[in-house]
């Protein structure tokens, strides 16, 4: 159960650690001393940083320990004040936060490639822990400007070893060689990438030749370090059927539509074959398939309902179903 959006919890800063240049880690506890609600890797919390500012920060503590939450915060000098306000927090300060919410869930797979750019390491830490606990094959590729700016790098190496934690500091080895990291599609491997937009764009481009659905990204909007809604719930109105259904974050449009008995032809259910192409009457989709061309996407009239969703900020799609 998640608390309704808008409900806040009073939390207190238990302690603050400087974990890298310009990066602090904050450990938060509930003021009432109760445990936090269970959460899954990839989750974030809203932090009310004062003056009406709300920022999202990914959790980098262990979901096994619910007596506290930890977030990592990069100080961005030109930001609109969120990170600055958080950096000003000291142990004992109180602040309002939300219960953990997850727009970036870790899906079941046999292998994982985790790809972090800078502070993007935070949501990947609980994912790595979960993958390790489940005995999965995984690797972390972690790039940053220099080791000194890369939070938790040493800690991760010590815990998991340098075979699977591969640190690429730009001042030592240059930029991440994404071509060699992602050049060869792998079977049954999901890619979870989090970091600045430039890195994620480059990752997306290289993953074009992978089976669709393998790449999961969480974008830090540069100015706020807030996470884009990777898998937010939304509504779909079925114009011909005459009903409106909710699409929760763990279901596809196709699954939701089939759930009320409306037939949609589909085949691969992974954005590869194009069979479930559906006409959009209104609303803006976020295309996640490997089939539609740029022209089709720009024209905006169709989407593949097996993988694509509503765009961030579009609460409702109206489909010709």
């Amino acid at each position: 159960m998640t608390a309704p959006a808008g409900t806040t919890i009073d939390a207190v800063v238990d302690h603050v650690d400087v974990v890298a240049d310009q990066v602090v880690s904050l450990v938060l506890r509930r003021v009432d001393g109760r445990p936090f609600q269970p959460w899954q890797p990839g989750a974030h919390i809203d932090v009310h940083v004062g003056d009406g500012l709300v920022r999202q920060y990914s959790l980098c503590s262990s979901p096994e320990e619910l007596d506290h939450l930890r977030i990592g915060v990069l100080h961005v000098p030109d930001s609109r004040g969120g990170s600055k306000a958080v950096h000003a927090l000291l142990a004992g300060f109180q602040l309002a936060i939300s219960e953990p919410r997850n727009n970036f869930p870790l899906r079941e797979s046999r292998r994982y490639l985790f790809l972090a750019g800078g502070i993007g390491i935070t949501p990947l830490m609980p994912m790595i822990e979960a993958a390790e606990r489940a005995g999965k094959e995984w690797t972390l590729i972690y790039g940053g400007r220099s080791r000194g700016t890369m939070a938790f790098a040493r800690q991760l190496e010590d815990r998991y070893g340098t075979d699977r934690i591969r640190i690429f500091a730009e001042d030592e080895v240059g930029r991440l060689d994404l071509d060699s990291i992602l050049g060869m599609p792998r079977a049954h491997m999901l890619v979870y990438a989090c970091g600045p937009g430039g890195l994620l764009n480059a990752v997306e481009e290289r993953c074009m030749g992978w089976p669709p659905g393998v790449l999961h990204t969480e974008r830090f909007v540069a100015s706020t370090l807030g996470a884009a809604a990777a898998n937010a719930p939304f509504e779909v109105e079925l114009a011909r059927t005459g009903s409106t259904i909710a699409v929760p974050n763990d279901k596809t449009i196709l699954e939701a539509v089939e759930g009320i008995g409306v037939r949609v032809l589909s085949s691969c259910r992974g954005g590869l074959c194009g069979t479930c192409e559906t006409r959009i009457i209104s609303g803006e989709p976020e295309h996640r398939d490997a089939v539609l061309t740029e022209e089709d996407r720009e024209a905006g009239g169709i989407m593949l309902v097996c993988v694509s969703r509503a765009a961030a900020g579009c609460p409702r799609l109206v489909l010709d179903l």
Binding site: M208, G209, G274, E277, A290, V291, L292, T293, E295, D296
Partner: peptide, 10 residues
Amino acid sequence: RALTGVINPG
């Protein structure tokens, strides 16, 4: 990729 550029829903 060359083929899907040519044969696609559009």
